[in-house]
Measured scan of single mutants.
Amino acid sequence: QEEEKEIKRLAKKFNASEEEARRAWKKAGGDPETAEKILKKKG
């Protein structure tokens, strides 16, 4: 599933848990760029 792959990639890229990545993904409405910004800010 595309979403799961994206979440795993985000978690790995930002050294975050999949739970954090999933939360960022949901907050971003499934937009990878926005999710990255959220995780970057958090990191």
Rank of each mutant, 00 (worst) to 15 (best):
K40F: 09
Q1D: 15
R23Q: 13
E19G: 06
S17H: 03
T34A: 13
E18T: 08
R22N: 04
K12E: 12
E33K: 12
E33M: 11
D31F: 04
P32D: 02
R22K: 11
G30Q: 05
G43I: 15
R9E: 06
E2H: 10
E18D: 07
K12C: 12
K37E: 14
R23H: 12
F14D: 01
I38N: 03
E4Q: 08
E4N: 08
P32E: 05
R22Y: 08
Q1M: 14
K5I: 13
A21C: 11
E18K: 05
T34D: 06
K13V: 06
K26E: 15
K41D: 14
P32V: 15
G29E: 10
E36T: 05
G29K: 10
E6A: 12
K13E: 08
A28F: 01
E36F: 03
L39M: 10
E3M: 11
E19P: 04
R22E: 09
P32Y: 12
K12R: 10
I38G: 02
E19T: 06
A28K: 00
K26I: 15
E2G: 10
E6R: 06
G30W: 02
W25S: 03
R9F: 04
K42F: 12
R9L: 07
T34Q: 14
G43N: 13
F14P: 00
E36D: 04
K27M: 14
K27S: 12
K26V: 14
E3V: 10
G29A: 09
I38R: 02
K42W: 15
G30M: 04
Q1I: 13
K37G: 09
K37W: 07
E19N: 07
G43S: 13
W25K: 03
G29T: 03
K40A: 15
L10W: 02
A11G: 03
K37A: 14
F14K: 01
E2N: 11
L39A: 01
E18I: 15
A16K: 09
I7M: 05
A16N: 03
G30R: 04
Q1K: 11
G29H: 09
E19K: 05
K42P: 08
K12W: 07
G43D: 11
K41G: 13
W25H: 08
K27P: 02
K41S: 14
A35S: 03
D31Y: 03
I38F: 07
K40P: 02
A24N: 01
F14C: 13
E20I: 05
E2L: 11
S17F: 03
E20D: 10
K26N: 13
E18G: 03
L39E: 01
P32M: 13
S17I: 03
E3L: 08
E3C: 13
L39K: 00
K42V: 12
E3N: 09
G43R: 14
K5N: 13
A16H: 04
E6P: 02
A11R: 05
K27A: 14
K27L: 15
N15W: 06
A35E: 00
E33F: 10
D31S: 07
A28N: 01
S17Q: 03
E2Y: 12
P32N: 06
D31H: 08
A11I: 09
L39V: 02
E36S: 07
A21W: 02
N15L: 07
A16T: 15
E4P: 03
G29F: 08
K27G: 07
E18A: 06
W25A: 03
S17V: 03
D31R: 05
G43A: 13
E4R: 07
K13Y: 06
K26T: 12
G43E: 12
R9N: 06
A28R: 00
I38L: 09
K26S: 10
L10S: 00
A28Y: 01
R9S: 06
N15C: 13
Q1L: 14
R22V: 03
L39G: 00
R9M: 06
T34Y: 11
R23M: 13
K37Q: 12
G30A: 06
K27Y: 08
E6V: 09
Q1Y: 12
K42G: 13
K27D: 15
P32R: 14
E20V: 07
L10C: 01
G29W: 05
S17Y: 03
S17M: 04
E33I: 13
T34K: 15
G29V: 05
E33P: 07
K12H: 10
K8F: 06
I7G: 00
E4T: 07
A16I: 15
R22A: 07
K40E: 14
N15P: 01
L39H: 00
A16W: 04
D31E: 05
D31L: 04
R22F: 05
L39D: 00
W25L: 15
G29P: 02
K42D: 12
L39Q: 00
R9P: 01
K27V: 10
A24H: 01
L39T: 01
E18R: 04
D31N: 12
A24D: 01
W25R: 03
A24F: 01
A11L: 04
G43M: 15
L10E: 00
L10N: 00
K13N: 05
E4G: 06
R23E: 15
W25P: 02
K40W: 09
K13A: 07
K12G: 07
E36P: 01
I7A: 02
N15S: 08
K41F: 13
G29C: 15
P32C: 09
K13Q: 08
K8H: 08
E6D: 05
E3H: 10
G29D: 08
Q1F: 14
E33C: 13
S17R: 04
R22L: 09
L10F: 02
P32L: 15
F14E: 02
E6I: 12
E4C: 10
E33W: 08
N15A: 08
I38D: 03
K13T: 05
E3S: 10
E2C: 11
K12F: 07
A28L: 00
E2A: 11
E4I: 09
E36Y: 03
L39N: 00
A16E: 06
R22M: 08
A21F: 02
E36L: 03
E20T: 06
A11W: 01
E3G: 09
G43F: 15
E33A: 13
K27R: 07
A24C: 03
